[in-house]
């Protein structure tokens, strides 16, 4: 029970960088929660922070490595995953965690993201999806639901939204899950699974942005916005069941909801594993041909 577990004060002292708090995040932003969940996952897995390297791009979410008492790279916009691939190539023993936003990963750095997922490079990507470019003033992100208002879409978004988790699932990543930040235990479990599964792990955390998204879209104050996420998401198993067996009204109601849950959890060979195999094979061939 409570006595056996580390308490939050100890967790903070262990993982947070001294003197950096309070965070720069707005009131009601869920990014702080995501960081907390990552700490809990690392704590429960017993990973040493010296074996962790963080990478991030630009944006609100990318400020996160600055609060962590571990090595981190704060890189150029959208290129966090490219840098993380480099870290992994240089030192395969590290647990590489990428903190990135929806605009950073899928808007600016879309290609880096999809190719890292396709190559199944061993890293864990914590993608904080808040539907908007929050830090730069609320420009439209590719993940914004159709009809959203943003500074660059004052009459409503006419584009279809990017479904990051399903895209990554299709690319064959080892682990894909999506959770809103207000369920604490499921994201912690997912981050643990993503960290311990070899290969590309994506945990998409839906983090409310009251300042740039909620306010413009009239979703209400902090509590109303958090409830909006609750009302507009549905567990994947429930969604599939309704689609198969539900009545017409149920299907109509479920259609516009965002699926949450674990999308994919599989074993699949990754880029560096295959690379090692290839080099070994070629060396052996060489040795056989020319002698040792």
């Amino acid at each position: 029970m409570v006595e056996d577990m580390i308490n939050a004060n100890e967790l903070r002292e262990k993982y947070l960088r001294d003197g950096m708090l309070p965070t720069i995040f707005c009131n009601g932003c869920g990014h702080g929660n995501s960081l907390d969940y990552v700490f809990w996952a690392i704590e429960e897995l017993g990973i040493d922070m010296d074996d962790v390297a963080l990478a991030s791009g630009i944006g609100c979410s990318s400020r996160i490595p600055g609060y962590v008492s571990a090595d981190g790279l704060h890189t150029t916009h959208g290129r966090a995953i490219a840098f993380a691939t480099g870290i992994k190539a240089a030192n395969p023993d590290l647990h590489v965690i990428v903190f990135t936003g929806d605009g950073d990963a899928t808007g600016i750095g879309g290609n880096h993201f999809i190719h890292a997922a396709r190559r199944n490079i061993d890293m864990t990507v914590i993608l904080l999806n808040n539907f908007i470019y929050g830090m730069t003033g609320g420009q439209l992100a590719p993940t914004a639901p159709k009809g959203s208002i943003a500074t660059t879409a004052p009459y409503g978004n006419i584009e279809h939204a990017f479904n990051i988790s399903e895209l990554t699932q299709a690319l064959g990543a080892a682990y894909v899950a999506r959770w809103p930040v207000f369920y604490p235990y499921q994201p912690i479990k997912s981050i643990k699974d993503a960290l311990s599964t070899p290969g590309f792990g994506l945990v998409e955390l839906m983090s409310p942005c009251p300042t740039a998204y909620g306010r413009r879209n009239k979703l209400g104050k902090i509590d109303a916005l958090w409830t909006w996420y609750e009302d507009n998401t549905m567990l994947m198993e429930d969604y599939d069941r309704i689609m198969d067996y539900g009545t017409e009204e149920e299907i109509a109601a479920a259609k516009n909801k965002i699926k949450i849950g674990v999308f994919q959890h599989q074993e699949r060979s990754g880029f560096f594993g295959e690379y090692d195999k290839m080099t070994t094979r070629l060396m052996e061939q060489d040795d056989a041909k020319w002698g040792v």
Partner: peptide
């Protein structure tokens, strides 16, 4: 009842639940 939900849901690491 020390469920520690407030501790987990606090985005600013401000709360600690002590038994």
């Amino acid at each position: 009842n020390y469920c520690r939900l407030c501790e987990l849901l606090c985005p600013d690491f401000a709360i600690t639940v002590v038994a």
